[in-house]
Amino acid sequence: MAIITYRQAIKDALAEEITRDESVFMMGEEVAQYNGAYKVTEGLWERFGDKRLVDAPISEAGFIGLGIGAAMMGLRPVIEMMFFSFVYVAWDQAVNNASSIRYMSGGLINIPLVIRGPANGGTNVGATHSHTPENMVANFPGLKVVAPCTAADAKGLMKAAIRDNDPVFVMESTILYGEESEVPDDPDFIIPLGKADIKRAGTDLTIVGHGRSVLVALKAAKELKDKHGIDAEVVDLRSIRPLDEATILKSVKKTNRVLVVDENKPYCGVGAQISHLVQRKAFDYLDGPVHRLSAVDAPAIYSPPLEKIQLPSDRDIIREVELMFNINA
């Protein structure tokens, strides 16, 4: 086990898979000679050269489409979105083509493609650059979506995504790139897609989240224990589609209370799906309604102190749990 950053973990995953499989290459804006806008690919171009690390012009539709075409031919392209917000200019390629071709060909064609990059708000870059499209991508049968929150998860899921024969969207976070945690050294360490992780065991309440919200929830859980003696279990989805329903339901049946937290917008967000699942399959186990915290339902505001308010904080989680438990704080 080594303690490395989330950024380094992704870089290691990319380097290992590029080394392991001749068909893996990485393409995106400034991923090669510039070393990556967020330094995720730093040093990889020097190490692997032009064929495996390709700087693309600002043409997301062009190079995502290229990636799909190359994947149809059996290559394993990893396409970087400098920000996932930029995927919208390539929406037809990223979701329509990537999700439909296997199906429309009656299963004759596979698309082993990874599209990865940061998908988060909270960095004061305004509404156009702060999108979290994991819910939208997950709405397309044919696509898979993961959103890791720790270095180990980032590495294990990235490797699983690259080895997968279906298109996988790996949604990272610029805020997490510098976070350090333990990562196994095994070059074949992978985390299966669709496997949630209990980041904190507890008995009184289940907090379900994904991405950075999980870390916020862990912080809140500690304070809930210290302040109110409430022992929260924190379930990190890690993967949005496929989804580990069993782990969520098992936790809910144990704690009987659920709070869903994410940085997605509320309307048709990931939390809405989780909430439906819980009421549909664990209704009799619930001691109260499912609660939900999402980003405040407006475009991401620029003003730094206000954007902080817009995303769910540990304070927001604690307050919501106090409401769930009828605690007058």
């Binding site: 296997r102 299963g107 596979n110 898979k144 699983a160 080895r163 997968d164 024969n165 279906d166 992978i190 985390i191 299966p192 897609l193 669709g194 496997k195 949630a196 993967s239 589609r241 496929p242 989804l243 580990d244 329903e245 069993a246």
Partner: peptide, 15 residues
């Protein structure tokens, strides 16, 4: 592909 070819992927959960 993972659904149609069980056992060939590192996939779990509901899809």
């Amino acid at each position: 592909h993972s659904v149609d070819n069980p056992g060939t992927h590192s996939n779990e959960g509901e899809i």
